[in-house]
Design a binder for these strands. Structure first.
Lengths: 68, 68
DNA sequence: ATCGGATGTCAAGGTAGCTTGACATCGCCC
DNA sequence: GGGCGATGTCAAGCTACCTTGACATCCGAT
């Protein structure tokens, strides 16, 4: 599951910490999601998409192999 | 976080068990998601949306209060 | 030369998503 | 009036998500 969080965050000139606090999560969570260390929950995925003004499917791109 | 899983599943004439096996999850998981007992993971939300041929935001509707 | 902001990463702990297995109820069909 | 498919629900257990707290590194500015 790829995502465009880092690209959109840096395009907005935000630090990981700034994005994290805007979303109400920890900085480590943003870092882990950007690096693909784990996937966000559904509400967090919605919160990220809402923050960047895009849809969930525009921010997260499931690979064929992680869909059942 | 409301969702339209039950409506779409019954519209397709599927049982919870049939949908579950089509998605590669357990029947209890489908039941719990339909009843709002817990939220699906992001890949499962994508799998559900893909199965019904809609986008994630067309299937799941976050309430304002569950967005941070 | 060093201070601060930004990032990467680890450990330990809590909670939520998901599992299997089991049991109960309901409605329908034979 | 018994059987069966569909649904609801529980318990116990595993893993993933997310937390706080800490420490290391890397630049860029002073």
């Amino acid at each position: 599951m790829r995502n465009d969080v880092r690209e959109r965050r840096t395009a907005d000139g935000l630090s990981q910490a700034a994005l994290a606090s805007a979303l109400g999560v920890s900085r480590q969570t943003v870092n882990a999601i950007e690096q693909g260390r784990y996937l966000p929950s559904l509400p967090l995925a919605f919160a990220l998409a809402l923050h960047f003004g895009v849809r969930v499917d525009e921010l997260f791109h499931p690979d064929p192999e992680d869909l059942p």
